[in-house]
Design a protein around this nucleic acid. Structure first.
Lengths: 229, 229
DNA sequence: AGACCCAATTATGGATACAAAATAAACCCT
DNA sequence: AGGGTTTATTTTGTATCCATAATTGGGTCT
């Protein structure tokens, strides 16, 4: 797209995800155009893209509103994520790993392994862990041979995932955080083993479990908010 | 929504799906704007939406091109469709059916049941069957309580599905066509039974099988054609 | 006093004009 | 003759203007 349009898109998206724009808040083209000192044209494209991403909703004649995320939205997002990622793992297991994919997954696992073997509080290296985690999941998504999976995944509302990310940062207990990362790491190891052995069923099941694990921690932290699923 | 923009979107989409615009063909804003006698603004929004739908691809500096569908694209689309629809069926089974949903599913099944019990060639009522089929699947999608599933589904490239639809119309053998529809109908009945009994695992498995069945017939037909490219 | 209607403000969709970037081609220089 | 540079054309991104639709608020009529 454009330099200005992409800029507006990035800024408003960050505003929404950071909570600077509260859920239910009204957003109009003229407003964002005025705030960011651009014309209405890039503002329009940005809002259209934001609506496609599911972060904002369109009202018939009264601008856009920031979508509010409910507990069930988070559960729904996790369910879809689990379905798509387990499909990707299954597909990749059926096709088999090539050298680059295997190397990338190994690299990701090596990073988390080294981190967990160290004595330093894992919270200090959270960014590194997050990077390795993203590498693992994106590698499988990209290498599975089904572009539509990633396509569908990218089009899903990322709002619930942002809420989850914010939740992860609220980790207070370092020991529990270490446990959480250890479990995730072990699941990565198991998934890689299943992929190498081309055990599609095992890879699919373990990836589904792994995706759902994220939700379990989510409800663990937001216990006061009530039930999920 | 917009009158002109939506119009352009619908027209160009139909042109692509009908094959009026060949795969690989260049599409530019000015071209469609000129052909449809509209400004570049609605043409741009339409092309952006079309790109989001996956029907066209954007080249950095040389316009858009119609995406070409390969055999594996069809298989990929079916796999994602199966994953999402089986998730929807599972979710709906866990939540349980309400009165309206049950009634809608019953209505869909009643139509196909009546058609298959008659002696008339099923090809004559194909449009009716298709309607009932769409009603069945959309009802489950909408009633499952997870909007993100439908959201992701709608954002998937519909090109492979269009190819499948065209394939279905080329059914030559009436008896085989009747068999195909009978199997599909029976799977609908089984899925409804599983939903009513809140058997999430059975509903999920049967829906996955049902979605994959479409692909099997796709392979069956394309074997004769050989030109699925 | 309540309800309905009309008007005004606001917001969005569309059109045209303008500018910048990129690509392809042609021309010039070595 | 080949390569590099420049130019021109194509394409895209942005701004401003205009028209239309809708909602809200105020006024009037019953």
């Amino acid at each position: 797209m454009s330099s200005s349009g992409q800029h507006v898109l990035a800024v408003v998206r960050r505003q929404i995800l950071s909570g600077a724009r509260a859920p239910g808040e009204k957003i109009s083209e003229v407003a964002v155009a005025g705030e960011l000192a651009v014309s209405r044209t890039p503002a329009r494209t940005a809002l259209a893209a934001l609506e496609a991403e599911g972060l904002i909703e369109k009202r018939k004649g009264r601008g856009y509103t920031v979508r509010s995320i409910s507990q069930s939205d988070v559960a729904n997002a996790i369910a879809v994520k689990a379905a798509l990622e387990s499909l990707a793992a299954k597909t990749l297991a059926e096709r088999g790993l090539n050298a680059e994919t295997d190397a990338a997954l190994c690299r990701s696992i090596a990073v988390t392994q080294a981190m967990l073997e160290g004595d330093a509080p894992v919270t200090e290296h959270f960014e590194t862990y997050h990077e390795a985690n993203v590498l693992f999941h994106e590698t499988i998504m990209r290498a599975c041979g089904n572009d539509l999976i990633a396509h569908a995944f990218e089009r899903i509302a990322m709002l619930p995932f942002a809420a989850l990310g914010a939740l992860s940062f609220e980790a207070t207990d370092p020991r529990r955080e270490r446990m959480r990362l250890t479990v995730g790491h072990s699941q990565h190891v198991i998934i890689l083993d299943a992929l190498r052995k081309r055990d599609a069923g095992r890879a699919e099941a373990m990836m589904r479990e792994h995706s759902h694990a994220t939700m379990n921690y989510g409800e663990l932290f937001s216990r006061d908010l009530g039930r999920a699923e």
